[in-house]
Simulated scan of single mutants.
Amino acid sequence: MTHTLSHRTTDGGVLDVLNTRWHRLALYGFLVVVVAHWVEHITQAVQIYGFGWSVPSAKGALGLAFPWLVTSEVMHYGFALVMLVALVVLRHGFTGRSRTWWRVALGLQFWHHIEHLLLIIQSTSGVYLLGKSAPTSIIQLVIPRVELHLFYNAIVFAPMVVAMVLHRRPNAAERVHVRCSCAVPA
């Protein structure tokens, strides 16, 4: 049995609309932003490991034109917060297995956000973790920053993509609870 949006009751608030009528558009918009962010991190890694640039010289694509983007803890924290908010807001449209995977991405992004919060607090206060010479996150004590952010973006992105694929292809039990038009026809 297939359901359409017209058969569902909604309160019409922004959160509801983003998770029903506009869910697909919101997810694709969010995906574009996340992929663009990925491209920046991958470009920076290519600059370092492919071209042999020093870490301070490797700024990604946008960072070459706007160097402050790479050095601004506020910008990095802002992006981590935007990702966290988007994952929280858009989770209401997911059901079943896709919701589980989306929650995994959300949990991982929450930790990534905490790491960026720690960095911005250090940057603002001038007091650095364990006496380091620059703002340092907890995991950065073990993994260098460039590699760490590639890792963080990968471990958030992977379950997010799994969630989106499962969301587009719900099983019969999940399809009954779907409130948006994201799912492909059965």
Rank of each mutant, 00 (worst) to 15 (best):
K59I: 00
K59C: 03
V85E: 01
I42C: 05
F30S: 12
I42D: 08
L106N: 10
G29H: 06
W53D: 13
T136L: 09
T100S: 12
S123T: 11
A80E: 07
A36C: 15
T100Q: 09
Q47K: 09
T124W: 02
G52K: 09
A58T: 09
P135R: 08
E73P: 13
F66G: 01
S123V: 02
V127M: 03
V89A: 11
A105N: 02
Q47L: 02
H113D: 10
L87W: 00
I48S: 01
S54T: 13
V104F: 04
S72G: 00
V82W: 07
P144E: 08
T136N: 05
G29P: 03
V32H: 03
Y28C: 10
A80Q: 10
T43R: 00
Q122R: 04
L87V: 03
G60N: 13
P56I: 01
A36T: 15
A80I: 11
T136Y: 15
S54Y: 08
T124F: 09
Y28L: 15
Y49I: 02
T71P: 12
E40R: 10
H41K: 05
L118W: 14
A80T: 11
G63H: 08
H37F: 06
P144L: 01
L119E: 08
I114T: 07
I138S: 03
V46H: 12
H76V: 09
R99W: 15
K59S: 02
V35L: 07
A105F: 00
L130R: 10
I120G: 11
F66L: 15
V82H: 06
I42Q: 04
Y128H: 11
I120D: 13
V33P: 00
V104D: 04
S57H: 03
L108C: 00
W53G: 03
P67Y: 14
R99C: 10
V89Y: 07
V35D: 05
Q140A: 14
G96Q: 02
G50I: 01
A105H: 06
T71I: 06
H116Q: 12
A26V: 01
F110C: 15
V88D: 02
P67S: 10
V46L: 14
L106E: 04
R99G: 07
F79L: 15
A134G: 08
S57W: 01
V74E: 14
L84C: 07
M83T: 07
I114R: 01
W101A: 13
H113L: 13
M75P: 06
W38M: 07
V82K: 00
H112V: 10
H92M: 06
V55R: 14
L87A: 09
T71D: 14
G131D: 13
Q44G: 06
Y77V: 13
V89M: 12
E40W: 01
L25M: 11
L129R: 08
A65L: 07
E115G: 04
